[in-house]
Write a protein that binds this DNA or RNA. Sequence first.
DNA 1: CGGCCTTTTGAAAGGATTCAACAATGGTGG
DNA 2: CCACCATTGTTGAATCCTTTCAAAAGGCCG
Lengths: 255, 255
Amino acid sequence: MTSSGQVKFSDNAAGNATSRERCRSCTRRFDSLCGVLDCTELDRLDDMMTHQVFESGATLIYEEDEAESVYNISEGVLRLTKLLPDGRRLVTGFLYPGDFVGLAFHDRYSYSVEAVSTVEVCRFPRLKLEGLLKEIPKLESKLLGMMSNEIKEAQDQMVLLGRKSPAERMASFLLAFSRRRMEKQVGRHFADVPQDDFTLPMSRQDISDYLGLTIETVSRTITKFGKEGIIEIKGRKGICILQRERLEDMAAGLD
Amino acid sequence: MTSSGQVKFSDNAAGNATSRERCRSCTRRFDSLCGVLDCTELDRLDDMMTHQVFESGATLIYEEDEAESVYNISEGVLRLTKLLPDGRRLVTGFLYPGDFVGLAFHDRYSYSVEAVSTVEVCRFPRLKLEGLLKEIPKLESKLLGMMSNEIKEAQDQMVLLGRKSPAERMASFLLAFSRRRMEKQVGRHFADVPQDDFTLPMSRQDISDYLGLTIETVSRTITKFGKEGIIEIKGRKGICILQRERLEDMAAGLD
DNA sequence: CGGCCTTTTGAAAGGATTCAACAATGGTGG
DNA sequence: CCACCATTGTTGAATCCTTTCAAAAGGCCG
């Protein structure tokens, strides 16, 4: 299989930015792996990179395919999915700008990666990047920290999936999303953006497959939160958190 | 809080083995992190290590405590647990000889660690080991690979918790346990030990908290497998797999 | 403005959980 | 060594809650 839905492609020869300038001027640089590199090292990264754009719904990575590339997200939202043979789906996570995808030190990808919105990524050949890792120990350290966070988040998600009620799952999700979104905004110097008011880029189906519920249960739970005045529902995807503390208590399992 | 249930303690001054010999002669050496080290490096590890024994039920690590130590398991089984305020519990994983515990690059532990059986561990001060990591890049690489595996396993477990039926969860668990056990046996040169016949060291409660089910559902599912001739139940903890393929199909979601 | 897809809402069904009682196991002390 | 006790595991019945199935409503795009 090959990636689909890719609408723009720019490599070192044909990119918009001058070669070796793209990484240096990247607004995401300090959010992600690249943040630990100096200019010389950054240029090496730049040399092995291609910038790509995927439209919403496109697949960047197919589960079980050979792991040839890794990606760093510069814009948009991705979802990681795993399928059971009969079509049951689980979304193991959503990824946001600054997040790293695909570097798992296995020969094949163990999940699919799809664009939830239009996405811009930096693509690296996996083996080359692994080579760079071995040469630059601080890259490895940074990655170790990122993976450590990923493990922690995965464990929290296991608690959610294994032991939380639908309302608790939904509360956890809304809070985590609003927090993540705020972090990213702060990173881009928009610290005063209201964190309680946001747009969910993913569908109810995505949310339910992330929370281990059905789409109907997610819908009913969101509606219930709205009726109880915990959130305000603004059209199909807009959410405004009215009672953050109450959501926090629910998410923690205090109800 | 402090660790409880510890029954034996031997540091460099009082240990059984001569100083700097313990790591070198460790039977687990090639299963775990230490496997990548040469003798000189191993001695440095040895110098910062204390050997400890915990009896079944003892707690090595309390969730939220300051992360001062990391452990390498030389014998026995540990469980990692997370609690919700009202007592709901999730076991995020079981750890076996050769596995590493506690190195998460956070200041506080995000889960508790308890002994499922009598356990022998090598204990290291976390900060010292992190220092060693920075000095020995191949240690970091090895750890990166181990964490990568951990993430992959966590994602599989998320699929299990979010989308699999009780029977599918139980099948996945039995197979994973028998596989893990076989790997360890092979590591110790017991390749001819029958892999289909084993003893579960953990209780039904542990299993249900690992699979996101109740103890009754686990019990009923095991009984059902027995009646269907998929496994043979040998007393309280003994299991013999009679139809491995059928279990594999169930675990994969093919039923 | 119309049509399509997503989401919401309703009613019924199914399955895991809960509650309760019983059985088996393993450890302890007589 | 056996009996007893406490703990762990099994089994049964009723309940509750999510899921399933079905249909209507709502939002978004051309």
